[in-house]
């Protein structure tokens, strides 16, 4: 088992004396300390390292700490990193300004060592929670798959990437067959269990595939770097696995699912994320009307491809 990596703390201060002091004072804390001697280097390292906490000196030559803070908070990728301000002379107004600009906390110089450590630990706890919440906000509570919010964002990214680099990308939309009847007949707890088992099958696929709960009993799987034929085979494998699942207490029960497969190359022209979803959905609808428990590849792409 590998232990989780130590949280990273980035100190931005223009005095080498301060960096030396921090290295000694924080040496036994559970963290990895990095240092930058000016604002530009600090921002560069913030991008490169993605630290969990930033210690930021207010008074630096050139770009001062306030400006660094404004830049960090204006950047969507860096704005959630907690910043602790450090300053020898900050007035009450300075401290208020720093907090209003989004700093989490403030430490005066010279450092009270015990307090410094406690404030860094506290900021690391905050960051841990922020990361956890950010992750939770994108995960479906019942199945543990990515949720619709994540799916939409990721699909947008992947289809843009696929277009930019002329790479294949496939999407499989799938839906449990007659799920309402299952729920009505065996009750909602059983229905939930079916959803969980179905999700497990989808999670057991290739590691590069991104399985999401699209809503209700519908699921979407993004398959980066994958063409239509391969995606069809992946979907067919899932279909067979689900069909073969055994249900405790219901020996003769067979649960099935239907699949629609679309990919960006079949249309012969650039396809938007919305068009891809709509094409896969249309194929899924045809799988349903053709008798369920089957995989259908999309043939129509674009605004005309509606249910």
């Amino acid at each position: 088992m590998t232990s989780s990596p130590l949280p990273k703390v980035l100190a931005i201060d223009d005095s080498e004396l301060i960096h030396r002091l921090l290295r000694v004072r924080l040496q036994y804390e559970q963290l990895e300390l990095h240092g930058a001697l000016d604002a530009a280097e600090g921002i560069r390292l913030a991008y490169e390292l993605r630290p969990d906490v930033i210690l930021l000196d207010i008074e630096m030559k050139g770009m001062d700490g306030f400006e660094v803070l404004q830049r960090l908070k204006a950047d969507v990728e860096l704005q959630d990193i907690p910043v602790i301000f450090i300053s020898a002379t900050a007035s009450m107004e300075d401290r208020v300004r720093a907090l209003d600009l989004g700093a989490l906390d403030f430490v005066g110089k010279p450092f009270e060592v015990v307090e410094l450590k406690a404030r860094v630990r506290s900021a690391l706890r905050v960051q841990h929670l922020v990361k956890m919440l950010a992750q939770k906000a994108q995960v479906d509570g019942l199945t543990g798959l990515w949720n619709r919010t994540y799916f939409d964002r990721r699909l947008g990214q992947e289809s843009a990437e696929a277009f930019r680099h002329q790479r294949p990308l496939a999407l499989v939309m799938c839906d449990l067959d007659s799920f309402k009847q299952l729920n009505d007949r065996f009750g909602h707890p059983f229905g939930d269990m079916v959803l969980e088992q179905f999700a497990k099958v989808l999670q057991g696929g290739r590691t590069s595939d991104v399985a999401c709960r699209y809503g209700g009993e519908e699921f979407g799987i993004l398959l980066p770097h994958t063409g239509g034929t391969e995606a069809f085979e992946v979907a067919e494998r899932y279909r067979r696995q689900i069909e073969a699942l055994e249900w405790p207490g219901h020996q003769s029960l067979v649960v099935t699912a239907s699949f629609g497969v679309a990919d960006v190359s079949t249309a012969g022209r650039p396809v938007t994320a919305d068009e891809l979803v709509s094409a896969a959905d249309t194929a899924l609808y045809r799988a349903k009307t053709q008798g369920r428990n089957r995989v259908v590849a999309a043939t129509e792409y674009g605004a005309g491809a509606q249910r």
């Binding site: 201060d13 005095s15 004396l17 002091l21 020898a88 010279p110």
Partner: peptide, 10 residues
């Protein structure tokens, strides 16, 4: 400035 901020720490 640098000594102001650091000397106390030492």
């Amino acid at each position: 400035h640098q000594l102001k901020g650091a000397a106390g720490g030492y």
